[in-house]
């Protein structure tokens, strides 16, 4: 169990197994990894050569196949997929539906078993409201910074309005960009993790 003495190839293999098994219920995954780890400790003597380790890993088979053997009923996957895609779509665009759509997305996100708790927290917090939030901000910023330039008696143009503080404006643009990119990045992340 001491990770320090673990052969790097064994460590990589167990990492792959954990990743492949992230859709399993937590207890089932922990037990499976513990069993495979114990197996490898028996099969790989201390100080084994790379070739010996690779042979032991070959005999075990691919981590993905082991995880697949945990879930013999694969056809459920399709129904799940629809659930997850709806969650991602509503988290992104649901905010435009009077905000209620986003809440529905949040409920779908939390009720899905395809994501870990960390993924769910990420999906819920980055960014509440999804793309509707930067959109609304953009609209507000657009009306607020209504810069008006007037030319009085053919003289030099006089500009009024909050546009004068261009630093503040730049900050607002940056904020809107971040608020746009963050939910998209989160949606991509969720889509990849749910596979």
């Amino acid at each position: 169990m001491t990770t320090g003495t673990m052969h790097p190839l064994v460590r990589d293999y167990l990492d792959r197994l954990r990743r492949a098994g992230r859709r399993l219920p937590d207890r089932q995954r922990t037990e499976l990894v513990a069993e495979i780890e114990a197996h490898l400790e028996e099969a790989v003597p201390p100080g084994a050569s790379d070739a010996e380790v690779l042979t032991a890993l070959d005999r075990l088979g691919e981590p993905e196949d082991i995880v697949a053997a945990e879930q013999p009923s694969a056809p459920v996957d399709d129904a799940r997929g629809a659930h997850e895609w709806a969650a991602i779509f509503l988290l992104l665009f649901g905010g435009f539906l009077a905000g209620v759509g986003w809440l529905v997305g949040l409920i779908l996100l939390c009720s899905s078993r395809a994501w870990t708790t960390t993924d769910k927290l990420l999906g819920a917090l980055v960014v509440p409201g999804g793309l509707a939030l930067p959109f609304v901000l953009f609209a507000i910023a657009g009306t607020a910074s209504g810069e008006r330039c007037v030319s009085v008696n053919n003289g030099p143009e006089q500009c009024t309005g909050p546009g004068a503080g261009s630093g503040v404006q730049l900050l607002a643009v940056a904020l809107i960009v971040v608020l746009t990119v963050a939910p998209i990045a989160t949606a991509v992340h969720l889509a990849r993790r749910a596979r």
């Binding site: 495979i36 197996h39 995880v67 053997a69």
Partner: peptide, 10 residues
């Protein structure tokens, strides 16, 4: 493959 036996045991 040996690995798929562990899910069976579980």
């Amino acid at each position: 493959t040996e690995g798929t036996l562990y899910p069976l045991l579980g």
